[in-house]
Simulated assay, not measured.
Amino acid sequence: MRYSILDLAPVPEGFSTAEAIANSVSLAQMADGLNYHRYWLAEHHNMIGIASAATSVLIGHIAGQTSRIRVGAGGIMLPNHSPLSIAEQFGTLATIYGDRIDLGLGRAPGGDGAVFRALRKTPDMAENFPQDVAELMSYLDEGRPGAQVMAHPGQGTHVPIWMLGSSLFGAQLAAVAGLPYAFASHFAPTALSEALRVYRERFEPAGRAEAENGPHFMLAVNVIAAETDDEAHYLHSSQKLAFARLRSGKPGKLPQPTRDLAEITPPLERMVGQALSVSAVGGPATVRQQLSDLIAQYRPDELILTGQIHDPEARRNSYRLAAEILDEMSA
């Protein structure tokens, strides 16, 4: 089973954005030397704790400092952009780096109403998402004779497109369009089982290389691995605090780990626990068992791992341990 990394390019407390980007490059280079298949970055706006707002720029930066691993978007929030501009950006990346670029597409805004206004967009643009996806795909496929607009670079690059989602809408669209599907189970797992059923049952082959062998499902999993269960749960406190603060309207940089989680009230604790339920947290034996259980339950074609860890070296070590565990499981 292929396994990959979803990097939210976190900016930890006490670190600058430049240091956060350097940490992402270091992690990508480590993953490039292991068996990780993809390295994806996500579009978020107006968030001081995330450094990947200019997603295609950061993808190019990391692709230029790695040699093997696929690099892509997990994902681009298409309602924020014109399909032509995204086709040109990713067509340019594919022209430079060849067949190493992925394009995952999401319908969420990647920000609030203020962000929409700053982007000169409106929330109702999400209603055009299926049409925008089709238009974008046309710009990356072979050009149509007589087409008034073509993407240069872009046309004929056939950048692989993935559908991202956390609801039945994305599952249905991925199935109808014959696209591979990645579910945001790392923070919104509520509809996971139903969305997966819909995607697999309704999948229609569309002749695209991304899913030429049928439906292709990627499961997103939070993984915090350390030498012991206790250390891993301590590191995991940063992600819990960050998520609780985000849901309380107080987003910020990734907090330092702590054993005092008193600020997370019981209602918030239940919400955080449910949101982060698709996780593997612990020492190697614990993480191996939890990943085995998730794989048995959802039967993914791929895994994509994410993990919000404050210390960059502890984050690299977590992904290193996860790779060892998954390699052993495959063997």
Rank of each mutant, 00 (worst) to 15 (best):
Y97T: 13
S56V: 06
D112V: 08
S56Y: 06
T66C: 10
F90C: 07
F116C: 01
D124L: 12
R70C: 07
A114G: 15
N80C: 07
I101Q: 07
T122F: 07
H81Y: 15
S67F: 14
D132G: 04
M163H: 12
P83H: 10
H152I: 06
P83K: 04
P145Y: 02
G60N: 14
V57K: 01
A134Y: 00
P153A: 13
H158I: 01
V71Y: 06
H81K: 10
A151H: 01
W162S: 04
Q65W: 01
G154R: 07
P123G: 10
Q155R: 07
Q89D: 14
L164T: 09
N80A: 13
A63L: 14
I86M: 09
D102K: 03
A134C: 04
V149K: 08
A114N: 13
G106L: 09
Q155L: 04
L93G: 03
R68M: 12
A87M: 05
A108D: 08
G146C: 03
N128M: 00
A134M: 06
R120G: 09
Q155K: 02
P109G: 15
F116Q: 01
L93P: 08
G113H: 15
E88N: 09
T55P: 03
N128K: 08
Q155E: 11
S82F: 10
L58D: 03
I62S: 06
T55R: 02
A147P: 01
I59V: 15
A126V: 15
M137F: 01
M77V: 06
I101E: 11
D112Q: 11
T122C: 10
R117N: 09
T92Y: 14
G165I: 12
P109A: 15
G91M: 12
N80H: 06
A151F: 01
T66Y: 09
P153C: 12
H158R: 14
G91E: 08
G146H: 11
Q65M: 09
T122N: 09
H152E: 06
L78E: 03
D124G: 04
I161S: 05
A63E: 08
L136M: 03
L119W: 06
R70H: 15
E135W: 00
M137P: 00
P109M: 12
G72S: 11
P145S: 02
D132T: 02
G64T: 13
T157Q: 12
S138M: 05
D112P: 01
I86G: 01
I76Y: 00
G154D: 08
H61M: 12
G74R: 00
G165Q: 13
A147S: 14
R117H: 10
P145L: 07
I69N: 04
L105N: 06
L136G: 03
K121N: 09
G91F: 08
A94H: 12
Y139H: 12
V149T: 14
A73Q: 10
Q148T: 14
T92E: 10
H152N: 09
L119E: 04
A108T: 07
I161R: 04
L105E: 03
G143W: 00
W162P: 01
D99G: 04
A114R: 11
I62T: 11
Y139R: 02
M125W: 06
P160V: 09
I69T: 01
A147N: 08
A134H: 00
G154P: 02
